[in-house]
Simulated scan of single mutants.
Amino acid sequence: MKKKTLMTKDQQRSKSRNLIVIGILGLLIIIAFMISMNTGYIKLSPLEVIRTLFGYGTEKQRLILFEFRLPRIVIAVLVGMGLAVSGCVLQGISRNALADPGILGINAGAGLAVMLFISFFPSTTAAPVFLLPILAFVGAGVTAVIIYALAYKRNEGISPMRLILTGVAVAAGISSIMIVLTLRLSPENYQFVATWLAGSIWGSNWKFVLSLLPWIVILLPFVFSKARVLNVLNLGDLTATGLGASIEKERRLLLAAAVGLAGASVSVSGGIGFVGLIGPHLARQLVGSRHQFLLPATALAGGFLVLVADTIGRWILQPSEIPAGIVVAVIGAPYFLYLLSRLKD
């Protein structure tokens, strides 16, 4: 009885600690949010930002804050959450620590669909803006099916290393197709596509926020509700089957959710990679591997990472900008090589 009570207290202590960590991550996003509102070529002091938020700013200050900075900041947070949780789900269903929508080629598939669309239709009208996440989801979904089919073997299932290598190969093939397609673009569209491929938060107005928000609001709670399923899947297929889990059905549902989150995020942010790799690993170090805490912590870590990267990109070379994808890649590429070396060991 004493041992059982002691275990319960340890669990409660661990739960309290994890909730505190999640609260701290939320606070960090708020701090980064405030700093980002003060960052830009045209300076706004913290007092001016607060006055403008409460309706006391000048016309110019309202234009800068509400029409240019706030939409971009909100998109950066939502994109970071979507990509990070997508990576966490992919790592859970594949039991592969290197799984990431960018590395596996899912982002590339979504990007190809978006690129095909913007090559033939203007992206400034309202209807195409709301179609972009759907088209990106289709492109990402087709790519995920191709990768899954190529990596799957009847007797062995999905090998983690084979999944990574297949994803890298498919992503390289899609990137080659995109390079060929750029040859037929006008100079204006080519400049846009080049910026988009670098991972720039290009959809920086409220229409793009509204196009992305439903995907995040619907899919994130769905994934959070599957936390126990992901815990069971991490135990292995045989154990999960023995515990009564419908493995293939749950895996397909979670894969569809991961593809939806990645595709919708890519449609407004471009090719930002490594967020789905860094976010889950950082969260796992902070709160452990139980998905009840890992998924919320991953969402907050991903949102914080992309927001900070976009803020640094806007600040470091003013008045020019560095795409957020490049800033994230500077951090993510070495981290990916580090994880790969550990996996070999």
Rank of each mutant, 00 (worst) to 15 (best):
V138E: 05
V168W: 00
S123Q: 14
N231R: 08
L44I: 01
I312W: 03
F120C: 10
Y152I: 06
K344F: 04
L44E: 00
F208G: 03
A169L: 07
E59K: 02
I73N: 00
G157T: 02
T125P: 01
G325W: 14
L104D: 07
V223F: 07
Q11S: 13
L210R: 07
A324T: 07
D10E: 14
G173Y: 03
R95I: 06
I20E: 10
A301E: 12
R290N: 12
L25A: 05
A127R: 09
D10Y: 15
Q91R: 10
V142R: 02
A113F: 06
H291Y: 13
L277I: 01
V209C: 09
I106N: 01
L78S: 15
P296R: 04
G23E: 05
L230K: 12
V306L: 15
N18T: 04
I30C: 14
G102P: 04
M34Y: 14
I50F: 03
R184C: 12
L150R: 04
G313L: 13
A257M: 11
G203L: 07
G102L: 01
A324M: 09
A297Y: 07
I218C: 13
K2F: 10
L243Y: 13
L104R: 03
A324R: 08
N234S: 11
S123C: 00
M37S: 03
L78Q: 12
R342M: 14
L112Y: 08
S94E: 12
L78R: 05
L163Y: 04
I216S: 12
V114L: 09
G109F: 05
A257S: 15
V209L: 10
A227M: 13
L261N: 08
K344E: 06
I50Q: 04
L243F: 11
A84N: 02
A172K: 00
K153Y: 02
Y190L: 15
V89K: 14
V77N: 02
S200G: 10
S159I: 02
V79N: 03
A309K: 13
A144E: 11
A113M: 05
T125E: 14
Y148G: 04
R69E: 05
T125S: 09
W202Q: 01
I312N: 07
I24G: 03
S200C: 07
G141W: 11
V229L: 08
T124F: 11
R62V: 00
I331P: 06
L277Q: 05
F66L: 09
E321Q: 07
H291K: 00
P296W: 06
V193W: 13
T5N: 15
Y56T: 02
A262G: 08
S86C: 04
R95Y: 06
L286S: 10
R17Q: 07
D10C: 11
